[in-house]
Design a protein around this nucleic acid. Structure first.
Lengths: 197, 197
DNA sequence: TTGCCTATTGGCACTCGGTGCCAATAACAT
DNA sequence: ATGTTATTGGCACCGAGTGCCAATAGGCAA
């Protein structure tokens, strides 16, 4: 087996290389204080080229997020029909946020960057839109509604809210796994709204 | 009665004037396509001066948001102790989003701008942080916790999520008031999580 | 070896948001 | 007329992001 053809000029880099260098710089001098020129120079490519790999500086730290969305959709689709919707969603979100033990520390660093850097915090809502949509689509199917109906969209918002809160808790904690915070968030919400009417 | 002293050079404008002109331009040519120079010129001030009134272009459309936060805190503080927490929060959020009949259309336009412009959507999470904090503080007090504990923070996230979803629904609707969507969001969440265990 | 084909590269110039600096300005008071 | 003072606004600069386009580096065919 050989590799694919190779039409024009070969790429000078790839996403992984850029991300690796970028994270090193972010860790060293912070996100804001690292310029796109810094990253491009460290990677050994032109600044213009970097913007062909990532549409913006804010998009660099997101790793496999978009690719994982497909996995999230599949996980939801495979949930048994007899599992209540909120349980199915909860389980799928747990699965979505599962990472190899070996990669936990790296994941932690990535999420810390995303959740504590104002520019990235702001930008994140644009990335999360697709995530919420997938949750809404699943809920819509379960309730026989359209994905852009009010009910599924509301659940999409709330599910994202609980995930974000769980991540905040996880980042502050020492050893407890993320899954425990997501469970806790679910319990918190159920308890809160079940308060005596 | 006269007015206050008048130390140095008098201000050349005020927030209201800038906001009025800015909204006119945004309505006319959209948020992204309106430059800060456009606004400054239309107001008749220097670009540098505009940035003394608003820290960023994204902050212009927020009106009395920060001032209203004080009102939100007071409303929460005045809720009777026998009202369940989630009901108290719900009522306070309803109150927070109440606007004069005469101002509804303007409010609608403002919220449409904030919720449909990507840059503003992104920036909004930074503004909402203070809002969530106020909800969390109230919940913390009710449950005898700290405001930055996991439970109250989770409720802050979820309450914001339901408000945002309510606004989305309201903006799409023709005549139903915002309050109805917020009620619906509450019902949606309660129903969703009360699903047979 | 030469030359064609082609996709990527990367430099250049430009726009726009945002900031630091500082002299000019417009009020009032003496 | 002079002094005090707070705001103004111009200027230069930085960093993110974009359109344009010639240069480049490979494979492939002659």
């Amino acid at each position: 087996m050989s590799n694919s053809f190779a039409p024009g000029r070969p790429p000078a880099t790839d996403h992984a290389a850029i991300e690796r260098v970028a994270f090193a710089l972010f860790a060293e001098q912070g996100f804001e204080r690292t310029t796109v020129d810094d990253i491009a120079e460290a990677v050994g490519i032109g600044r213009r080229t970097l913007f062909r790999y990532y549409p913006s500086k804010n998009d660099i730290p997101w790793g496999q997020f978009d690719a994982s969305l497909i996995h999230l959709r599949e996980t939801l689709a495979q949930m048994p029909a007899d599992v209540p919707t909120y349980r199915a969603v909860h389980a799928a979100v747990q699965e979505f946020n599962q990472v190899d033990d070996a990669a936990v520390e790296q994941h932690r660093q990535r999420m810390r960057l995303l959740l504590t850097t104002p520019a990235l915090q702001a930008h994140s809502v644009l990335r999360y839109t697709a995530w919420r949509r997938i949750i809404a689509e699943f809920v819509a199917e379960r309730y026989d509604l359209a994905a852009d109906d009010f009910f599924p969209r509301t659940i999409g918002h709330v599910t994202l809210a609980s995930s974000l809160s769980a991540y905040e808790g996880w980042l502050e904690s020492e050893s407890a796994p993320f899954s425990r915070f997501l469970d806790e968030a679910l319990d918190a919400i159920r308890g809160y709204y079940a308060d005596p009417a």
